[in-house]
Structures are given as structure tokens and as C-alpha cells.
Simulated assay, not measured.
Amino acid sequence: MTSQSILFQQRLKSNAESVEAMLAGLLSAGLQAGEIARPERLLAAVRHGALNGGKRLRPFLVIEAAALFGEGPASSAVRVGAALECVHCYSLVHDDLPAMDDDDLRRGQPTVHVAYDEATAILAGDTLLTLAFDIIAAPETVLTDRIKTELVLALARAAGIGGMAGGQALDLAAEKNAPGEAGIVTLQAMKTGALIRFACEAGAIVADADAEARGLLRRYGETVGLAFQLADDLLDLTADAQTMGKATGKDMARGKGTLVALKGQDWAERRLNELAAEAETLLAPFGERAGILVETARFVANRRS
């Protein structure tokens, strides 16, 4: 293991701990200004869906992309990362529902609708999605109103009908009519890639970077998003449920098309290496400062869980 990869692992762990602590505080029983009550069962379900470990890769990308510019309060990047993680966790809670992907296991523990019930799981997801925008808008997020507005708009576009939610709709449709290669690429860019792309661009927005730098981080995020989903599809084929902490092989069982199914494992492994190299090229203008993000792309391409 190289010194850069060791540093990456240390930063991944420390940033995850920071985000976990932030989320735990935001999801405490204490009321915020304007709130009336926090129902105990709903709060427990929300905490079950959000405080269950995980690598916190998306907030990590926000924090490290912001740090690339050496600007912007670090606490604000953590808060924006926590907001993004709320959107991601909401999507998992809802995706696991019987009407969607119907999963019983997530990160090695019962999914929210199994641990509680379906109605509570729906409300838990609603709560997390709403909380994401609360976090960005709150005065504790020390950013200008212009930057907050840019973040809210970008996150809404990444999470909505033209992004993650639309991607989930395409994913459900794919169970009945398997898409071709172009359709799979579009579906995955929306369902998985949009939030990862936002994570990287959000770091540049937090740092108030110029349009050129913001564009590079956006393209880097798109590349990492492609690699993440391709690696996920490969793991769905090759890993076991215990390693993944969730059911595997379900896409194949449902007849959903993936690039791995279309082109094979060897192609997927070569393509993952190409995507990691493409990500590194995009970061070249930032020099040594981008070392952690370069290592992140390699980690995503080579991940085993």
C-alpha cells in the first residue's frame, strides 16, 4: 500500500466520523427553531436509516473537493456533505421498499421498513430528503446566500426527475423492458451518477471556485460515478451478500440489463482502469493537491464492497 493510499484511507475514515457525528447531532431529539415535536418512532427510524455506518463516500467527495481549493470553512463542507448523505440515505430507504427493490438487508442490518414498517419508512425517507435542504439553508452553514442557492439548485436537479428519482423510475421500467447500452448508460448516470457528480461539483461551489474548475470537478464526478456503478454491477455478479451487506445477484434475477451483462467481466475490469485514468487526467491541472481525489477514483474502480 502506497503512502498516498494510506493517507486516503485515513481521510476516508476521519471524514466519515465527522459526517456521522454531524448527522447524529442533527438527528437528536432536540427541537430546532420552528419545529413543534419530533415523534419518537419516526426519529428512531430515521436514525436507523442514516446512522448505520457506511463509507460516506459522497460527503467525502464534497469535503475533499472543497479542500482542493484551500478555501471555504471546513465545517460548511462537512454540513453540505451531511446534507447530501441525507438525500442518499433517503433514496436507499425508499429503494428498499417492497414497491421498489424489495430488499430486507442494507449495510448488514434490516432495512427500515423491515425494522419498523412501510409507512414509517416512507416518512423516514421524506424526513431525510427535507432535512437535506434544511441543513444547507440553516445559518449554521456559514456560506453566502448566493452559494447556498447554487447548492440547493444543483442538489435538487441531481436528486429529482432529471437525476436520481428519474433514474429509479427508469430502473423499475428496466425490469419489464431491458434497455440497450445507451439506455443503461443514461439510467445509471441518473440513478447513481447524478449524486456523485453533485458531490464533486458541490465542493467547488462551497469553495466558490471559478467556472473552469467547477466544470473539471463536475466531469471528474461524472467519471467517478460511471466507475462506481460499473464496479457495483461487477460486485453484484461476483461478490456475496455477507461481503456487500445487502442482497446480490438481484439485477440479473430480475432481467435488468447492465453493462457487465452486455460486455462481460473482462471488459468491465478494463473499463474501470480506463475510468480511473480519465479521472486522474481531469485532475492534472490541480497538481499534487489532487492526490487524494486521484486515489479516490482508484479506490472506487477497485472496490470490493
Rank of each mutant, 00 (worst) to 15 (best):
H48Q: 14
H48W: 15
H48R: 10
G49V: 06
G49I: 03
A50R: 01
L51D: 14
L51F: 11
L51E: 14
L51Q: 13
L51S: 13
L51N: 14
N52E: 11
N52I: 08
N52R: 12
N52L: 14
G53R: 11
G53Q: 13
G53Y: 11
G54E: 02
G54H: 06
G54N: 05
G54I: 02
G54S: 10
K55P: 07
R56C: 06
R56N: 06
R56P: 01
R56F: 06
R56I: 04
L57W: 02
L57F: 15
L57I: 14
L57V: 10
R58D: 11
R58N: 11
P59K: 00
P59A: 05
F60V: 04
L61N: 01
L61D: 00
L61I: 15
V62I: 10
V62T: 04
I63V: 15
I63K: 11
I63R: 10
I63D: 02
E64S: 14
E64K: 07
E64F: 03
A65E: 05
A66M: 09
A66Q: 15
A66P: 03
A67E: 03
A67M: 09
A67K: 15
A67V: 02
A67D: 12
L68T: 08
L68E: 10
L68D: 05
F69M: 13
G70H: 07
G70E: 10
G70K: 09
G70F: 08
G70L: 10
E71T: 15
E71M: 10
G72L: 04
G72I: 03
G72W: 01
P73V: 07
P73R: 15
A74T: 12
A74H: 14
A74F: 13
S75P: 05
S75C: 13
S75E: 15
S76Q: 08
S76F: 00
S76G: 13
S76P: 02
S76T: 14
S76Y: 03
A77N: 06
A77Y: 02
A77T: 04
A77G: 05
V78P: 00
R79F: 10
R79N: 13
V80G: 08
V80D: 04
V80H: 08
V80C: 14
V80I: 15
V80P: 07
V80R: 02
G81M: 07
G81P: 03
G81F: 00
A82Q: 05
A82Y: 01
A83V: 04
A83F: 08
A83K: 00
A83L: 07
A83M: 08
L84Q: 03
E85M: 09
E85W: 03
E85G: 09
E85S: 07
E85I: 05
C86R: 07
V87R: 06
V87C: 14
